[in-house]
């Protein structure tokens, strides 16, 4: 039943958004304050990641002070467990977090939406086997699956992107198949089939342009989950490996200070929280009619 409700919601959302685009309404004008705040947060984070060498006050591996110095004018967020500037580490760490989470989300969208559209357009045995395989993959909790696979694979950025991307593509597959099934029965797709167009043409020229809007909103959510997922893996010591750092591994590095009342680990953890909240605020205002249907993590 839930699936049917979700499908209806997506169809409604699809109409809503294409309507908004038709009217050429500029998005910013209609954004709520929450969404503007979220956008601001995203711009600040993305900007500091891109311009890290110019923004950061120190070098990323430079030991500049004592261990776990408190917040001061010299060290805006204090120093970490070996005396590096936390703000600098945070800015450079943003690069890894954004890059790996972004690449994994892109991969999951390329894979998931292509296969989802393929299943919807071709139907029959292709649809059945892809969908059942997808159900099987989704029946294992993502984190457990990732841990099992990472126990045999070398842990590096490429593996992380591939594992996260493939596991997340199952969610994208389900959504894009559901969206594409609704589009595939429309007259213009029928017309394209009768013209004798190939499957790839139908996928890229007929289905994709009409499915872009719901997929775009989903992209934001999936990216937020990818950030959380990568941070979790890094926190467990199975994500980005030292000397490289992302926000999750910064939490891991500084966690021993917590019991002495040193809040250094909370700063990268808070950054992750602010980033995912920002993304959710933006997506939520776009999806305001369907917020209650937004899925949980995993």
């Amino acid at each position: 039943m839930l699936v049917r409700v979700a499908n209806g919601a997506w169809a409604g959302l699809f109409g809503l958004m294409s309507n908004a685009l038709e009217k050429r309404s500029i998005m910013l004008v209609h954004l709520s304050w929450g969404a503007r705040l979220g956008l601001l947060g995203l711009i600040v984070f993305a900007g500091s990641a891109i311009f890290a060498p110019w923004v950061a006050p120190y070098g990323p591996d430079e030991v500049v002070g004592d261990v776990w110095e408190p917040i001061s004018a010299q060290f805006w967020l204090g120093t970490d467990q070996i005396g590096r500037d936390l703000l600098t580490r945070l800015i450079y760490g943003a690069r890894n977090t954004f890059f790996v989470a972004g690449a994994a989300t892109l991969l999951s969208f390329f894979m998931g939406s292509f296969l989802g559209f393929l299943a919807a357009v071709r139907g029959g045995i292709i649809d059945q086997s892809l969908s059942r395989l997808n159900d099987l993959m989704m029946a294992i909790p993502t984190l457990i699956f990732a841990l099992v696979v990472l126990s045999v694979l070398p842990v590096n950025m490429l593996t992380l992107i591939l594992v996260m991307g493939v596991l997340d593509s199952t969610r994208v597959f389900r959504l894009s198949r559901a969206v594409a099934v609704d589009i595939a029965v429309l007259d213009f797709v029928e017309a394209a089939r009768l013209r004798g167009e190939k499957t790839l043409w139908i996928i890229f020229r007929e289905i994709l342009p009409n499915a872009l809007t719901p997929l775009f909103a989903e992209f934001g959510l999936r990216f937020a989950f990818a950030v959380l997922f990568l941070s979790t893996l890094s926190f467990l010591g199975l994500g980005i490996q030292p000397p490289e750092a992302d926000w999750g591994s910064m939490v891991k590095e500084n966690k021993d200070g917590i019991v002495f009342g040193i809040p250094a680990a909370l700063i990268p953890a808070g950054a992750i929280a602010i980033l995912t909240i920002s993304i959710n605020l933006v997506v939520d205002s776009i999806l305001s009619r369907t917020t209650s249907l937004k899925g949980g993590r995993g």
């Binding site: 979790t232 926190f235 917590i258 009342g261």
Partner: peptide
């Protein structure tokens, strides 16, 4: 909505910070 976006370790360490330390 905020709680959905928070990583477990943020909530966990925040609780440790206040309730334990």
């Amino acid at each position: 909505l905020a709680a959905i976006s928070l990583p477990e370790f943020f909530i966990g360490y925040l609780l440790i910070m206040f309730f334990a330390v």
